[in-house]
Measured scan of single mutants.
Amino acid sequence: KLATQLLVDLAEGCHTHHFNSLLDIIEKVMARSLSPPPELEERDVAAYSASLEDVKTAVLGLLVILQTKLYTLPASHATRVYEMLVSHIQLHYKHSYTLPIASSIRLQAFDFLLLLRADSLHRLGLPNKDGVVRFSPYCVCDYMEPERGSEKKTSGPLSPPTGPPGPAPAGPAVRLGSVPYSLLFRVLLQCLKQESDWKVLKLVLGRLPESLRYKVLIFTSPCSVDQLCSALCSMLSGPKTLERLRGAPEGFSRTDLHLAVVPVLTALISYHNYLDKTKQREMVYCLEQGLIHRCASQCVVALSICSVEMPDIIIKALPVLVVKLTHISATASMAVPLLEFLSTLARLPHLYRNFAAEQYASVFAISLPYTNPSKFNQYIVCLAHHVIAMWFIRCRLPFRKDFVPFITKGLRSNVLLSFDDTPEKDSFRARSTSLNERPKSLRIARPPKQGLNNSPPVKEFKESSAAEAFRCRSISVSEHVVRSRIQTSLTSASLGSADENSVAQADDSLKN
């Protein structure tokens, strides 16, 4: 292990032709098999893994070397290190390495390699500790012929580059190093199909959405987006994914797998022009299946994007999809995704031109529960009313008269009656009930004795009459309010007539 670390330190600071010789020695160290011998017992696995620490030291050392060589000349050094790393990870899946030390190597290698970024000039870069990406002036992410390196360097940008540029090249004859992302992409596909350690798979799935944002990485080298989509959909639809995973937390289920895969599918929607129609349908189907899991909100957001990006695919699945959405409970976490999906859909009339009455009724059935102001915040309630109004205007004229009683009944049950079921009123009724029952229970537990009763009969009569009056008032709060309003209006009217009579009498006395 110490000798391997010494080789790594020497290679990191070497800029001459001896660098390749040092890498040859490190490569021989990495070539050791990580498969346990067949006769190895389970209690000896930890000791055997400790004997392979030099392999881990070599791989982690290459990660440090690549981070240094990416910004220094010659660029061919970075290319050689990158290829060695990718080849080593491929061996893991070729020979099915399952030892804990092998999983640790893959975890740290993917953690580093999935941080690679590219700008519009195809320059590769890595983020620093502050998250700012520094791009290399010597390494690009696409394949290029050595003699055409300078031509590639002087080509115009596709868009303004992001991030601070690296140091300027030493001279005009500098050759750019090619670090094609397709090599890593193929290893990522192998990981999605064969990885057995949940920690490694979770890391890859968590980092892929951010990497897919940099389309330069994908399009400048032959990366098959179709295969990526197929691998992701197979993970969700195939039963073998959960069987092969180990190291998963207790209670791990298909729902947890959906939570990890759906963000990658959402990021892949922007590549729909490069996906086969069959793959697009598979993607939409997987998102529909996710509606029954805890990732339902993410799936609804993804389907909203699909309705804009892939209208030809979503239009066929939309009638059944809208009916499925009615089975989702009206909760605060689902309110905004569902209502925004319906609001977006209302502005795309070509998608729902074939809707029948059942689909329009489903839209109103989804939106009406969110009009309850005692359960949802003001934004959700306003958005629900907006969706109902928009869809009522957009639905066909023959359907409107049939939906009017349905909508008014839903609004009455969710908006008007919600004020009668407020917690304050319920607590008031509970308190009044307890007050009504309390005197009775006290009389049963403690019967009054005439000799020891010091309270006069008049006081008892007053208290009983007050309790009886309170019971009468607490029967119905709404009736009490109505009666008080009527009494107030009658009182004001009587006072007004009394004032008029007094004024008339005063005038008569003055005349006399």
Rank of each mutant, 00 (worst) to 15 (best):
142 D>N: 05
132 V>G: 10
232 L>Q: 00
222 P>S: 07
243 E>D: 13
133 V>Y: 15
227 Q>I: 04
52 L>R: 06
58 A>S: 04
141 C>I: 04
166 G>Q: 14
229 C>T: 07
233 C>M: 07
193 K>D: 14
123 R>V: 01
239 P>C: 12
180 P>S: 05
151 E>I: 14
236 L>W: 06
158 L>H: 12
156 G>L: 14
92 H>V: 00
74 P>A: 03
61 G>Y: 00
249 P>R: 07
205 L>M: 04
130 D>T: 06
93 Y>G: 00
124 L>R: 02
238 G>E: 12
49 S>H: 07
220 T>S: 09
98 T>V: 08
99 L>T: 09
166 G>W: 10
132 V>C: 09
234 S>H: 09
92 H>K: 00
241 T>A: 12
247 G>T: 07
49 S>N: 11
159 S>T: 10
73 L>E: 10
236 L>V: 07
135 F>L: 03
233 C>R: 02
210 E>D: 08
163 G>F: 08
84 M>V: 07
99 L>E: 04
93 Y>H: 00
152 K>F: 10
177 G>C: 08
144 M>A: 14
227 Q>M: 11
222 P>G: 09
229 C>G: 04
130 D>R: 07
250 E>A: 10
96 S>P: 06
214 Y>P: 02
49 S>F: 03
224 S>P: 08
64 V>N: 15
129 K>V: 14
190 Q>C: 09
118 A>M: 02
180 P>C: 05
179 V>Q: 02
238 G>A: 10
100 P>W: 01
243 E>Y: 08
149 G>V: 12
247 G>F: 08
81 V>T: 06
94 K>G: 05
179 V>D: 02
50 A>S: 08
157 P>T: 12
201 L>D: 00
144 M>D: 08
157 P>K: 13
118 A>F: 02
226 D>H: 04
165 P>V: 11
245 L>Q: 02
137 P>K: 09
217 L>I: 03
179 V>L: 12
229 C>Q: 03
188 L>D: 00
139 C>Y: 10
101 I>F: 04
231 A>N: 06
231 A>H: 06
236 L>N: 01
120 S>W: 08
127 P>E: 07
246 R>G: 08
218 I>G: 02
129 K>N: 10
143 Y>D: 12
58 A>L: 00
125 G>M: 03
131 G>R: 05
195 E>K: 00
55 V>M: 02
159 S>P: 10
76 S>N: 08
178 S>P: 04
64 V>H: 15
147 E>A: 13
187 V>H: 01
175 R>E: 14
191 C>H: 01
121 L>V: 08
63 L>T: 12
77 H>L: 02
101 I>W: 02
234 S>A: 13
72 T>G: 06
131 G>W: 03
161 P>K: 11
237 S>N: 09
151 E>L: 13
233 C>V: 06
50 A>V: 07
53 E>G: 09
243 E>F: 05
150 S>T: 13
69 K>F: 00
147 E>S: 09
234 S>R: 07
140 V>A: 05
203 L>G: 08
161 P>N: 11
56 K>I: 03
106 R>M: 01
222 P>D: 07
76 S>W: 13
219 F>I: 10
90 Q>T: 09
135 F>V: 04
199 K>R: 13
199 K>L: 10
58 A>R: 00
183 L>W: 09
126 L>I: 13
131 G>S: 05
74 P>N: 03
150 S>N: 10
95 H>W: 07
195 E>V: 00
67 Q>V: 02
237 S>I: 14
79 T>E: 14
178 S>W: 04
126 L>P: 00
145 E>G: 11
252 F>T: 05
121 L>K: 12
164 P>G: 11
88 H>S: 01
201 L>K: 01
220 T>Q: 04
95 H>G: 07
151 E>S: 10
131 G>P: 02
164 P>M: 12
159 S>L: 11
207 R>G: 04
147 E>F: 12
100 P>A: 09
252 F>A: 04
141 C>P: 03
123 R>M: 03
251 G>P: 05
219 F>D: 10
101 I>G: 02
51 S>G: 12
93 Y>R: 00
229 C>K: 01
245 L>E: 02
69 K>I: 00
58 A>C: 05
54 D>H: 03
132 V>A: 09
141 C>R: 02
79 T>V: 10
192 L>G: 00
177 G>F: 07
233 C>W: 03
82 Y>H: 02
97 Y>C: 02
96 S>Y: 11
165 P>Y: 09
177 G>N: 08
49 S>Y: 05
187 V>D: 02
215 K>Y: 03
147 E>D: 13
214 Y>R: 04
153 K>M: 11
161 P>H: 13
246 R>K: 13
183 L>I: 11
180 P>K: 05
151 E>K: 12
189 L>P: 01
101 I>A: 04
122 H>I: 01
213 R>V: 03
213 R>L: 05
228 L>Y: 01
68 T>W: 03
155 S>M: 13
68 T>I: 08
125 G>N: 01
115 L>S: 10
240 K>S: 12
252 F>H: 03
202 K>V: 03
143 Y>N: 08
220 T>F: 02
144 M>L: 11
65 I>L: 15
138 Y>V: 06
56 K>P: 05
219 F>P: 02
232 L>C: 06
204 V>N: 00
77 H>G: 03
193 K>H: 15
117 R>H: 03
135 F>W: 06
58 A>T: 01
88 H>Y: 01
131 G>A: 05
213 R>Q: 12
118 A>R: 02
173 A>G: 10
80 R>H: 04
179 V>P: 02
235 M>W: 03
83 E>D: 07
237 S>R: 10
242 L>R: 05
74 P>M: 02
99 L>D: 06
200 V>Y: 00
175 R>S: 11
165 P>G: 09
120 S>M: 10
120 S>K: 13
140 V>D: 03
89 I>E: 00
72 T>N: 10
183 L>T: 11
201 L>E: 00
116 L>D: 01
60 L>R: 14
239 P>D: 14
154 T>Q: 11
52 L>A: 07
143 Y>H: 06
210 E>R: 05
237 S>Q: 11
123 R>P: 02
63 L>M: 14
49 S>T: 08
214 Y>D: 06
153 K>N: 14
84 M>S: 08
150 S>C: 12
201 L>F: 02
103 S>I: 06
165 P>Q: 09
124 L>S: 04
161 P>I: 14
96 S>D: 13
207 R>Y: 04
105 I>K: 00
252 F>C: 10
151 E>P: 11
81 V>C: 08
154 T>C: 13
218 I>S: 03
86 V>F: 02
58 A>D: 01
66 L>K: 01
246 R>W: 05
149 G>T: 13
115 L>V: 06
52 L>P: 01
217 L>Q: 06
129 K>S: 13
120 S>H: 09
202 K>W: 03
99 L>G: 06
93 Y>A: 00
248 A>L: 13
181 Y>M: 04
182 S>C: 12
94 K>V: 12
59 V>M: 04
64 V>C: 13
155 S>C: 11
251 G>K: 07
243 E>K: 10
54 D>R: 00
66 L>D: 01
91 L>G: 11
93 Y>C: 00
205 L>I: 03
82 Y>F: 12
123 R>N: 04
122 H>F: 03
